[in-house]
Design a binder for these strands. Structure first.
Lengths: 326, 326
DNA sequence: CCGCCGACCTGGAACGTTCCAGAATTCGCG
DNA sequence: CGCGAATTCTGGAACGTTCCAGGTCGGCGG
């Protein structure tokens, strides 16, 4: 594990100056074909690879993209992260991942650590983030948020799906199938959850079902059972869940109670994550275009790099994927 | 977004030399308390943060840990990655994540990219990796593999769970419950899969059930149904699946056929990933100590940094988590 | 009063690259 | 054959830090 050859070693071996090696290996034209060949050969023989750190120090750009994600245990997050990395790679950027930033403290610390490494940009994948924190980070490098904040944060670009519309799709589908008493299960008070809830309520009203609006609220760690039982007792025949994880809880409960899905209870989820395909019956769910969202986040950062200073808040349209559960 | 203050700015403001600022901020003693205070104050006022890149260039260490993972869509992987990052952070290391390294080509490319950034060490989380690739990477920085290779790779440390033992636990549990015709479902020809299969076969033999050994092989994308139906037709009453994902397939199929689990068919998985808790009925599964494995990988790298040159191959003992499916 | 020690501080070199200004060489053309 | 322009190449400076060798200064023992 002896020390790596440097550009000087290559220069010496090829009998040229370090500057020319730099030019040749970066593909600059203005290097004669013969010399270039000699340089490339020398580099290959020595197993030379340029030191990205030194380059980053000299240039202003590190080609590093910091990605901060709330957690990796929600498939929705990981799929966005994968999309971000794919897009980043396409532009020669490497992704630095920090996870577990559910709490503001840890989020701040991770953002700082990434900033110290001079990342060229930051993507925050989370259903929530402290605006002040994001703005502090944005003083170092442009920030794009995938996910929803309560309201647009000045200086921060964002990519979202239209939660209200998604909720309306879910309700519309259930209404078309003849359901009237449609409940909404949620354990979230975060912006995305609130938006879906609002979308659900609005859709119910617009279908003339204002009287049947029923929101089953619970705490994250609390079982969904009691609230569901109560709703079922009141004749509820369908549940629109805040996300696939919660929809899974509904399916579980139906299983426990021996209720047939969808005959006895129709269930619609949100996210269309990998979970939806694992559910039995297969989960009908609102699909967020995750791949597109991840790629768009990278695109927004690239626009910042090329000089855009106005904020952009992109809202993509979700679609309903109908499977067996409703 | 103007350029960050450097150590020189702090030095000027505090009226000392850059060197002293460096010493003071790193907590070196030999800086008088009064001066240190002045320096810290100046740094705070300017919002100075040291440039990790410049430091890394000057020192030999980057404090960067490269993590290469096959994919993020398997909860087992993500949990190991989380454990690695937790352990890394504890030692002041930042994690650089590269995913999607299922294919040798992409794996090579990602390893190279991480090497160019001068990561101090590499953790490869995958059920397989080309030994030559690992060794090439190890010429740049120590490599620890979490997962199994066919046989130990010279120069590469590894952390594994004892797959044979885990398989024996699963079979033992099923035998104790009175099962004799126990099948094994697998779609993998990778080392871990092969080891579990071998463990299954050995355990069957040792329980005097050699005559009932039945391995249901299939391709990754192929449905498990046909093989399972055949086994069921032959009186098979239990299935030990290669991992939780495949166990899920068994549960799905049982659902489709209206077979009650565990009364009509007992199912045991492997990994005890988050999936096991989502399954209905809850999946009995062999638990790999993922958190411990991730932390151990980081520990192995640290030992390399402090001079160890002999290889270490750690094998941790799995345990069976009994739930409702068997 | 001298010399030395320890505490505190400093300036220059180094890490490996890219950028810049300009030097050396070749080429085209009158 | 000479001269300007292109082409090809070069050496030094710079990026922001840490390391190193050494400098200053007050105090203290002899």
């Amino acid at each position: 594990m002896r020390s790596r050859p440097t550009i000087l070693d290559v220069a010496a071996r090829a009998g040229v100056s370090k500057s020319l090696v730099s030019l040749a290996l970066r593909g600059d034209d203005g290097v004669s074909p013969a010399t270039r060949e000699r340089i490339v050969a020398a580099a290959d023989e020595l197993g030379y690879r340029s030191n990205a750190l030194a380059r980053a120090l000299r240039q202003t750009r590190t080609m590093l993209l910091g990605v901060v994600v709330a957690s990796l245990d929600n498939p929705y997050h990981t799929e966005v992260v994968e999309a971000v990395e794919r897009a980043a790679e396409k532009h020669g950027l490497s992704v630095l991942l920090a996870h577990g930033a559910r709490k503001a403290g840890r989020m701040a610390e991770r953002l700082d650590a990434l900033g110290d490494l001079n990342v060229d940009g930051l993507v925050v994948v989370s259903s929530w983030a402290d605006p002040a924190l994001l703005q502090a980070a944005a003083r170092r490098a442009p920030v794009a948020m995938v996910g929803r904040s309560l309201e647009p944060v000045a200086g921060i670009d964002s990519v979202n799906n239209d939660d209200e519309h998604g909720a309306a799709l879910a309700v519309g589908h259930l209404v078309a199938a003849g359901h009237e008493r449609i409940a909404h299960l949620t354990s979230s008070r975060r912006p995305a959850g609130l938006a879906r809830r609002a979308g659900y309520e609005a859709a119910m009203v617009s279908h003339g079902l204002a009287g049947h609006v029923r929101v089953i609220e619970r705490d994250r760690e609390e079982p969904a059972g009691p609230g569901l039982d109560a709703a079922l007792a009141d004749g509820c025949s369908a549940v629109f869940a805040r996300n696939d994880v919660e929809a899974f809880d509904v399916l579980d409960h139906a299983w426990d109670r021996g209720i047939d899905v969808p005959a006895g209870l129709a269930v619609v989820g949100y996210d269309d994550s990998a979970l939806a395909l694992r559910a039995r019956p297969r989960l009908t769910s609102v699909h967020q275009p995750r791949a597109e969202m991840g790629a768009l986040a990278v695109e927004l950062l690239r626009e910042r790099w090329s000089g855009r200073t106005t904020d952009r808040h992109e809202v993509l349209t979700p679609r309903l994927v109908v499977r067996a559960s409703a």
